[in-house]
């Protein structure tokens, strides 16, 4: 079984970024509006087709989390300034959507280095 990574630290950086440090040492910096648009809850993604029903432009550019809370040991829950609060972000999902260059490259198929 592949080792799962979990956050060792999580903090707000400036007004717009959430930083997560992972057990493997990787550090992810997420613009919060990107996180809001990546919500996978039933209201934002079609349960059957998996298609995103949330239009990116429907999310105001200045959306902010109100509170971020761990869920059990495997996920984070976000309450947003636009009133949305049904999204649970599993750590697996969060890591998969890390927007850093390295991860984006790896996700698009060209695994870096190896």
């Amino acid at each position: 079984m592949a080792e799962k990574v979990s956050p060792t630290n999580m903090r707000q950086v400036g007004p717009k970024d959430l930083e997560i440090t992972w057990t493997d040492g990787h550090v992810s910096t997420y613009p919060v509006v990107y996180l809001r648009r990546s919500c996978r809850c039933a209201a934002c993604v079609d349960e059957w087709t998996g298609e995103r029903t949330l239009r990116p432009e429907a999310v105001p550019e200045d959306v902010k989390p109100v509170r971020i809370e761990p869920v059990g040991r495997y996920a984070l829950h976000f309450a947003w300034s636009d009133g949305h609060s049904s999204g649970i972000y599993s750590f697996d999902h969060l890591r998969a959507i890390c927007p850093c260059g390295e991860c984006v490259k790896a996700a698009s198929g060209e695994s870096p280095g190896s």
Binding site: Q12, T23, V66, P70
Partner: peptide
């Protein structure tokens, strides 16, 4: 929690400022 890679001590909640 480091002895188990799956389960470090969870980060606390954040109230966004």
């Amino acid at each position: 929690g480091k002895s188990l890679p799956h389960a470090p001590i969870m980060p606390g909640p954040i109230d966004w400022k």
